[in-house]
Design a protein around this nucleic acid. Sequence first.
DNA 1: CTTTTACCTTGACAACTGTCAAGCATCGGG
DNA 2: CCCGATGCTTGACAGTTGTCAAGGTAAAAG
Lengths: 223, 223
Amino acid sequence: MIVVTKRRRKGAKMARRATGAAQRVAVAEVPRDEKFNARRIELAEAALETLGELGFARTSLREIAQNSAFTHGVFHYYFSDKLDLICCCVRHYKAKCVTRYDEVVVSARSREELTEGFLAKLAATLETEAAMHRLWYDLRSQAMFEPAFRKDVLEIDKSLEAMIWRVASRYAELSGRQPVSSPAALYALFDGLFQSALLRHLANDKKAVPELLAEVRRLLPTI
Amino acid sequence: MIVVTKRRRKGAKMARRATGAAQRVAVAEVPRDEKFNARRIELAEAALETLGELGFARTSLREIAQNSAFTHGVFHYYFSDKLDLICCCVRHYKAKCVTRYDEVVVSARSREELTEGFLAKLAATLETEAAMHRLWYDLRSQAMFEPAFRKDVLEIDKSLEAMIWRVASRYAELSGRQPVSSPAALYALFDGLFQSALLRHLANDKKAVPELLAEVRRLLPTI
DNA sequence: CTTTTACCTTGACAACTGTCAAGCATCGGG
DNA sequence: CCCGATGCTTGACAGTTGTCAAGGTAAAAG
């Protein structure tokens, strides 16, 4: 099901290639597919908006379309499926997410600098991108039911683990040590803390963010 | 909306109480409400079956009814709402879940005994109650979107944190120590590890359970 | 026995869902 | 200038959803 869109595109390619000069078509093909893909990402970004607001369960294609500049039919033109669309959303989300702390990691010159930078980014993320993150937790849960999501979700989870590991490694390095925890345990810890804080934050618990920061601050030296 | 069912019951009560002898009615009222509540729990249990299989997003009242001995109308008689039903499910789930490791905690006479008992229970839970647990993660994510779920979910989360804390405290006690981590951090850690292992387990990753056990075994002495 | 009550079934309702075919527009190539 | 392809809109489709009212049944109350 997921490859129907691609098949249609390939079919179109074949048809063109059979008619015109191979050379000209070949160079024209690349920007065409890039344009196609760029549109997919535009649509995915629009979809992420609504998904972040309503969650997977309550989001329909029509709702996505209404909250965007597109009509509901376009989504079927660019995606074979609702799942195809959401998979694309998840993959796109990944790219934006996974490098969140990298700038802090490379620029920090001391343990304190890394700590403060990390905490600041953590708090900012929790407060300004709450919708995006609850969607991530939603979709990760969906992956437990929907096999079609699993591959992408597991991949992103690995990337996030690696992201946390980069922070922790750098922190240990700045302390002249090696992390004592495994990547998996560290990710589980920070992800669990973040998830809990996010829920409390969304429930208007004013102490959610400061308590998360205090906890992480206390935890960082022990990793 | 949520209290409509209760209101209807109270109305029935009032009507009865006004007609008959107060004494007889008073003693008859208790088993009636107990019966009513028992039925609610029966229905909630039936609903949990389907919810665990399909997840919140894909579960309809009719589907729940078809996978059970009830008709779809009964649910509207006992619950004001779909949300009311699912809230009841969540609360009922809690009672079963929160005491999972308590027997191990009280019966363990040594650190090793506690470790082995805890790990065995952990593995058994992951393998035999995977559906129930993915539902929990699903509903916890839903709570980030649906305010009606938040109170119950946050309450259960607290209970689970306390459950983990009981295990950790006992473990430290058997080592003649006090836990060095906070309850929140310990719960985040174990919950994160469990969640990740559950997803991998559901994705047919044979190494998910053993790796979880190894990680926990390695972590327990450090808490 | 009759009436009333609690409990449950059935069927219908309007709204909403994903999907998709038919058609319109816009634009580059011939 | 026209033609055909690409991109997009529109409207319709069959199926599903939560909700609820009308009605039935069986047991308890009178």
